[in-house]
Simulated scan of single mutants.
Amino acid sequence: MNRSLTRKLISVNFGSGPGRNLSRRSQSGVALLLVVFLVALASVLVLDLAYSTFLGGRLSASAERQLQAEYLLKSALNISRVLLREDKTIEDSPKDDWGIFKDGLAVPAEWLGLTQPNIQVQLEIRPEDTKFPLRQLVPSGSAPNTKWVSSLYRLFQQMDFDNDKEADPSGPFKGKHFESRELIGNLLDYMDYDKESYSDGTYSGLEGQLPDGTFPNLPIQRVGELSVIPGFTAERIRRLYPFITARTTNSINLNFAPKAVLKALHADLSDASIDEIASFRDSEDGPFTQAQWTSQIANFVSSDILDGPDGIRIMLSPASRQFQVISKIDYGTSTYFMQALIEKGSPRELPKIRAFELY
């Protein structure tokens, strides 16, 4: 075998020459792709880890803020309870220590031990019976109370429900506009103990036109229940909300009730009389006191309005036992709320919490 042939055989057997160079280039390309892939994968993992860490930090900070806000709101509630416990007068008045919060006010930071300047806690304390008591329309086991029924009708008229063009958005009466008398009838149907449509010649309901079980025929428990009663649209409920309550109260607080609620109590109460009542209770001579309120109010209304057939004496009181407490905290870009109902007990006893909600 000559030398030339031997070299060719060696070249073929040991991979020298162009074929081997091509194989090396292919292996280098695969290795480069593998390196690029591994670098990209590592980058994705690092970014994912960084984002997870960032997100975890954000969630942890949010949970911490929420927890701190909850405790601050509960502290504001306890401040309300202490202020009401320390109230030395029987009647309620803006002059009471808690009265400064009647329209909402920031709680002094030192009361809460706050040192962070960007946190502010707002607090509002108001007697619950400044509002119209819906349960008094149909007292338990009784026929409708005509005084309260007529008063609520006048409140609806003040709000111009007869002409507001509000129509039911859905249900069997979709598109129908219910006037004030019909709204009263529907509300009485909702709470009275029979399944028939209410009708007394003045107010008319429609329970008899609805499937059995539509109305519970029980005292209303929450203002939100109005939404299932025909005619009570979302807009009407929104407008009514500051003036009505489903809590168990049986009188209107003369020292804090809105003018609209007071005016609705009697057909002959004039705007001038209501203005005089409001001016007196906030003046140096006010408020209306537990011992003298009937003689004090006699300076502004007639004896017939106070003690006549539709007299309002039994519907009024200068004091409350139940109070609504609302608190709000602005914490950075987040806002948290608390709403509670507290009830006074015996003197020196811390008022009891009857309802509590955080949102």
Rank of each mutant, 00 (worst) to 15 (best):
M1F: 13
S23V: 14
S26E: 05
A31P: 07
A40Q: 03
V44R: 04
V44N: 03
S52P: 00
L55Y: 14
L55W: 11
E70N: 13
L73V: 03
A76P: 04
R81I: 07
V82R: 04
L84W: 06
T89C: 03
D97A: 15
F101W: 04
P108E: 08
P108C: 05
A109I: 00
W111I: 00
W111R: 10
L114Q: 08
I119W: 11
V121T: 05
V121S: 03
R126E: 02
E128Q: 11
L134C: 06
L137I: 06
V138A: 08
P139L: 08
G141Q: 06
A143T: 14
T146F: 09
K147Q: 12
R154C: 01
L155Q: 03
L155A: 04
Q157H: 02
S170K: 14
P172S: 11
P172V: 13
K176M: 07
H177S: 09
E179L: 09
L183W: 04
L188T: 02
L188C: 06
D192H: 03
T202S: 14
E207L: 02
G208Y: 05
Q209P: 01
L210M: 15
D212G: 02
T214Q: 08
S227I: 14
P230M: 06
R238F: 12
R238T: 12
P242L: 08
R247S: 15
L254Q: 02
F256I: 05
F256Q: 07
D271V: 15
I277A: 00
I277V: 12
A278M: 10
S279V: 02
R281P: 04
E284S: 14
E284T: 12
Q290L: 10
A291W: 03
T294K: 15
A298W: 08
F300S: 14
D304L: 02
P309W: 01
M315T: 01
F323S: 01
Q324I: 12
V325H: 03
V325P: 05
G332R: 13
T335K: 14
E343W: 01
K344N: 06
P347F: 11
P347I: 07
E357T: 01
